[in-house]
Design a protein around this nucleic acid. Structure first.
Lengths: 340, 340
DNA sequence: AATATATGTGAGATCGATCTCACATCGTCT
DNA sequence: AGACGATGTGAGATCGATCTCACATATATT
């Protein structure tokens, strides 16, 4: 029952022509007699011939696969992006290899090396690290198309798709300040991560503009998972004089903060005000609904894929740096606080 | 600046040996002189040689990649599974290609064909369809390892990892009945989908056991996304005599139902009781917390990957049919109803 | 000393598809 | 009639790694 897939040789034999002719007939290039072409088509049909993409790739040097290295597919933000990229890739006749760096530079590097040895055509990467991006520069040096997504990497000059993190964070914090808050907490993930740095920078600049001194006790750092965020929030709010409001840098952390507040019996927005970066499905179900800075998630993956496939199609030119705006969506998780 | 990656030939030339010897030195097989081996290693090192996996694969007939076709990576259930598979694959020196069938059989078939032409080593598939599984049978006929996940396909005899859908659904509905409900709604996705059928079957058998007649007006069908579930729920509860309780077959639909109830001003559990299949992060944050039937999501992907890699390692034997138990987690979204 | 065995190495075939080149066979134009 | 272009086709090289086979040496055994 174990029959090997048919090869071009088989097709050629069945059609009584040479491999070269069979190839011409199937890929329609060069001169092929009409009748011959038919014979070959028929033979291919009968054998269920379906070219070996590996062999084709060996010859052409390129496998019709694009690689995608993200922080974590479990994060709905990245899941959405991965999905959109996959859809576009399929439309372009490519498949998608996914790797998760788990925010470890070493992992990212080894994953990339492993994918490169596959002669993959192009990459979309959400780089983990700030500096140390020789592995990414290496791609560029060898003219392998690379699109950075969600984050840019220092000193790596290539296409990128990001959002206005700093501006979004600033809007959020300015809104809190405008509502009378001055003890504003920040729940962020690791400083190695670009978005985390930018969002913190927006947080800081909003504070500075309002003349509020930065205070490290107002800042908690955790990994970007619901569980870690719960712990970090509890720690942050167990201090003697905790923040009166909290800005969280992504939706998983927002959810973690929500769960933490519930477990601590802290009421939102009565006891603490909350505002998150990145919208999420249940943000409007919770009571109160959660005020967030939203980013156009559905655009990001598509934009990155579009740029990548343009490059694969041979488009030259200066790197495209796409940056989407963010939007403050006011709901009910922030309350006005009379200044004391 | 564009230097091609070094090939074995380059290494051999630099080390002044033949390609064969270089290969032997690098892969340590056959006889190689100690000194020669060193020279080759050094040359490889200097050139940054890193074998072309494509060429290796063409020769061996197999690319160290496993394919994974799921319904939708955006579903946190599948995202979790994909993540776990990716981690295990990496440990086994493989990469992961992901495709989304979007619950379309045609898509699943074409995706599988496209991945097969890559000479991928094995597959993990969540089959969309009930019958019509010739494409899956084709894999088995050619001895390509295949593990079905979350769902099994009729007439396809291979490894599989599923949960006790029927039992889980029965537990949920029995619990509702025990709480005095007899107008029990079901929000399910397409009947083509295995889990949907099984969970409905559990729903039906619980009703039947309690002597409650099945009523099609109590059943709503929608795609498995939050948005579609919102609409379906609203339709279901806009009838003259709507259900007094609802069982939803997955977490996205549960979230959709929650949003729908909120928008309709229906209070849980006062007006309507709700119980969902598959737990989710915010289930304990909502007010009330949501009662669910949980499945061991973190086990499923890992189990499937483990089985797949055992097969890839050459393990023979009868198909493994793994089936995990589900667990009813009682929280606060179901209220006792006095029988009228 | 002669044969057997262990140890190293290289030439060339192979995987499957593609592409260049050479060689046909037509028709057409001067 | 001879020549040139258009049209069709096949032989063989190529992509890069691997593996078989043949051929060397060196060491061991009788």
């Amino acid at each position: 029952m174990v029959r090997k897939p048919a090869t071009l040789k088989d097709v050629a034999a069945l059609a009584n022509v040479s491999r070269a002719t069979a190839a011409r007939a199937l890929n329609s290039y060069g001169y092929v007699g009409g009748e011959t072409a038919q014979k070959v088509q028929a033979a291919a049909e009968k054998l269920g011939y379906r070219g070996n993409r590996l062999a084709q790739a060996l010859r052409s040097g390129q496998l019709p696969i694009v690689g995608c290295i993200l922080g974590d597919i479990q994060n709905p933000f990245f899941a959405r992006i991965a999905h959109d990229i996959e859809v576009l890739a399929r439309e372009c006749g490519h498949n998608l290899v996914i790797g998760s760096s788990e925010e470890e530079l070493a992992q990212e590097i080894s994953l990339l090396a492993s994918l490169r040895s596959l002669s993959i055509r192009g990459f979309i990467v959400a780089p983990t690290s700030q500096g140390n991006n020789a592995h990414l520069q290496g791609l560029i040096d060898e003219d392998v198309p690379l699109v950075l997504i969600d984050r840019v990497a220092e000193g790596v000059d290539c296409d990128s798709v990001v959002v206005d993190n700093e501006g979004g964070a600033r809007k959020a914090v300015e809104y809190l300040i405008g509502m009378g808050h001055n003890r504003i907490g920040l729940l962020q993930d690791d400083m190695r991560i670009f978005t985390s740095r930018e969002r913190r920078s927006g947080y800081r600049s909003a504070l500075a503009a309002a003349g509020i001194a930065a205070d490290d006790r107002m800042v908690a750092v955790s990994q970007s998972t619901v569980e870690h965020a719960v712990d970090a929030t509890i720690r942050l709010f167990s201090q003697k004089s905790p923040p009166t409001s909290l800005f969280t840098v992504d939706s998983l952390m927002t959810q973690g903060a929500l769960l933490a507040f519930r477990s601590m019996g802290v009421s939102i927005p009565h006891d603490v005000s909350l505002i998150g970066f990145d919208d999420f499905n249940l943000a409007t179900f919770t009571d109160p609904q959660i005020t967030v800075v939203s980013q156009p998630v559905s655009e990001i993956g598509r934009a990155a894929a579009r740029v990548l496939f343009e490059r694969l199609a041979g488009k030259d030119g200066a790197p495209q740096k796409i940056r989407f705006e963010t939007k403050l969506i006011v709901r009910g998780s922030v309350s006005r606080r009379s200044v004391i």
